[in-house]
């Protein structure tokens, strides 16, 4: 698994993110590769989620949030004036920490996003396909009209993944997708991520180092510097980060000495 086989699909250049005057993330440079699972790990408050949310401009909704630097997606800065953030979010989907299906039927949960994006094909096929891709079809195929909130937490989260797939993104951002799930549901999501990585690039923020070690190809380690701004300490192949970290801070973190 070598990185030079792949072109970077997202290139982050000298990214700093501010909440009003507070600098939450400082000078991050990062390359995300196609069809890889990239994990972002680090202690609480180091700006992992902030960075993740900047990839599809979800930070736009936070009053006072602003960025410096560039995030190039297919060589185009997604923060350029002429870029429509709605289009960015259609190409870079997102799955959130807490499963948040719409309070509608399972079918409508999947169909809605596709409909909003002007999908005109056979909706039944799309729903079946995406549910299969999200490894949920067998469990729900007989009750597609049931309210999504009646599913278990793990099923809800897979539904949220299916819902994101239905919009046909290139990248899926996952913000601690398993933190509200039990170990078995977590394992299912990790298997699913592995499957999905054949067709999608996945970036996952996680608190769980075992998860990063198990499920990701690349790992970026973030921490806080003295003025509480998040900085990226080390980035590389997951195997290398977890077996042979170059940085002392990384080693301390992954061996459990802090964080």
């Amino acid at each position: 698994m070598t990185e030079n086989k792949n072109q970077p699909i997202i290139t982050v250049k000298d990214l700093s993110i501010f909440y009003k005057t507070f600098r939450a993330v400082k000078n991050v440079d990062l390359e995300i590769f196609e069809n890889k699972i990239t994990a972002i790990i680090g202690p609480s408050g180091c700006g992992k989620s902030t960075v993740l949310r900047s990839f599809n401009r979800m930070n736009d909704f936070i009053p006072g949030a602003s960025i410096q630097g560039n995030i190039l997606f297919h060589d185009k800065n997604i923060y350029d004036e002429d870029v429509d953030p709605v289009q960015v979010r259609r190409m870079i989907g997102m799955v959130f920490q807490k499963p948040n299906p719409f309070p509608k039927s399972i079918y409508e949960n999947i169909a809605w996003g596709a409909k909003m994006n002007g999908f005109s094909g056979n909706m039944d096929d799309l729903v079946e396909k995406t549910l299969q891709d999200a490894a949920l079809w067998d469990e729900v195929k007989d009750e597609l009209n049931k309210n999504a909130l009646s599913l278990s937490g793990g099923q809800q989260q897979r539904l949220c993944i299916a819902r994101a797939l239905a919009v046909k993104p290139e990248i899926i951002l996952m913000d601690e997708p398993c933190s509200a799930l039990d170990p078995i549901a977590t394992l299912k999501i990790e298997d699913l991520m592995r499957e999905l990585s054949h067709n999608y690039s996945i970036i996952i923020v996680t608190h769980n180092m075992q998860q990063a070690a198990r499920a990701s190809d690349m790992t970026a380690f973030f921490t806080m510097d003295e003025d509480r701004a998040g900085v990226m300490v080390e980035y590389g192949l997951t195997t290398q980060i977890f077996t042979n970290p170059k940085n002392k801070q990384t080693e301390d973190y992954i061996t459990g000495r802090f964080g």
Partner: peptide
């Protein structure tokens, strides 16, 4: 209305108006 609902909608590439109207 929980903000997670709005985020889910925005995350799927819905516009502000679609989010307000449908969710």
């Amino acid at each position: 209305v929980p903000s997670s609902l709005r985020q889910a909608s925005y995350g799927l590439g819905a516009t502000r108006l679609q989010t307000i109207w449908y969710h």
